[in-house]
Simulated scan of single mutants.
Amino acid sequence: MFSPLFHSMTACIGMEGKAVKAIFFDLDNTLIDTSGAGIVAIQKTSELLKTTLGLDETTIRSICDKFKQKLLHECFDSSSGLSVDEVRVRHWEESIMETVGSCSTPSLADQCYYMWKNSRLDVLCLSPEVRTLLKQLRSRYKLLLLTNGETRTQREKVEAVQCEEFFDAIVIGGDHAEQKPCLSIFTFCFNLLEVEPQDCVMVGDSLDTDIQGGFNAGVQATVWIKNAHSAVLDGSVQPDYTIPTVLDLPTVLAQLS
């Protein structure tokens, strides 16, 4: 479905200016619908809580909202001696305790966490359209996946959606001292692909990490995926291009000449 546009894009790029050689992609809510998968996972866990505790919908919603807030503000520190799984089990335990005053079954927090985790991974996927796009792009560019997050968590997502074949390299922020938007991780990526910053395009859904990071690193262009989950904060960096879905990326690449 992209072939005519890709032929046009190939003719355009390189006629003037500096040709794009590499594209860096974010993962969550850029290539895969992590937020949507999270909604499904919370629904499944709510059903577990309802069956186990017999609580009303409002109380269950409060437990789940507390967990989501803890997850949102999580600062995982491997030096604590706890695994990310253990930290997130604790999130569920605290959310239940804070809402109902006790955790009736010692294993309930574990059950909630693994229901949430496995349900989320089960529904994460690269759509057929995104897979086709990446395959076609890789015939013309070097592709790199650059994702923030704890190493094991992000690696599990990569494995679940089976996207390794589409990339020349996969870089997970948790493996490095600094993550996006810091310059150091972008410099690592440039060296890994043997490209210059001006050879690259950064594509992602976060203005604060993906777009700001690309700007800090001096890439040729930044492309913001403005979807239903995207947030715009005061003082956010301005992307060079804004599109509603990564499937519109070929249109942007055709303009870069």
Rank of each mutant, 00 (worst) to 15 (best):
Y114S: 01
P239T: 02
E178A: 15
S184E: 05
C12K: 13
T242K: 05
C182V: 11
S83P: 07
A217S: 12
S46F: 00
D56S: 10
G14Q: 04
I32S: 06
E86H: 10
N227H: 11
M9Q: 12
L108F: 03
V100H: 04
E159C: 05
E165F: 08
G235M: 08
T99E: 05
G14W: 07
S127Q: 05
Q111V: 11
L207C: 03
K68L: 14
S3D: 13
E98K: 11
C112A: 11
T132E: 15
A22Q: 09
T59A: 08
L27T: 07
I63C: 07
T151I: 04
D234C: 12
T222C: 11
R140Q: 13
V246D: 05
M15H: 11
A221F: 03
A109D: 01
D110E: 14
C64S: 11
C64G: 06
G174W: 01
E74L: 12
V84Y: 08
M202L: 02
K66I: 14
P181Y: 06
T34N: 13
I23H: 04
A221L: 08
E16A: 15
L31C: 09
D56G: 12
V20Y: 00
T30H: 07
T34D: 09
I39S: 14
V89Q: 01
L137I: 01
P128F: 11
H176C: 02
S127N: 04
N29G: 06
S236R: 07
L82G: 03
K68I: 10
Q43E: 15
A169V: 05
L5H: 11
T147N: 03
D122G: 04
C189A: 15
S95T: 00
Q69M: 13
L27K: 01
K226G: 02
G218F: 10
Q69D: 13
L49A: 00
G235S: 08
E16R: 15
F2W: 09
T30V: 08
G17T: 03
E129C: 13
W224Y: 13
T45Y: 06
A160E: 09
L249S: 11
Q238E: 15
Q43Y: 10
T99N: 04
K142I: 03
V89R: 10
A160T: 02
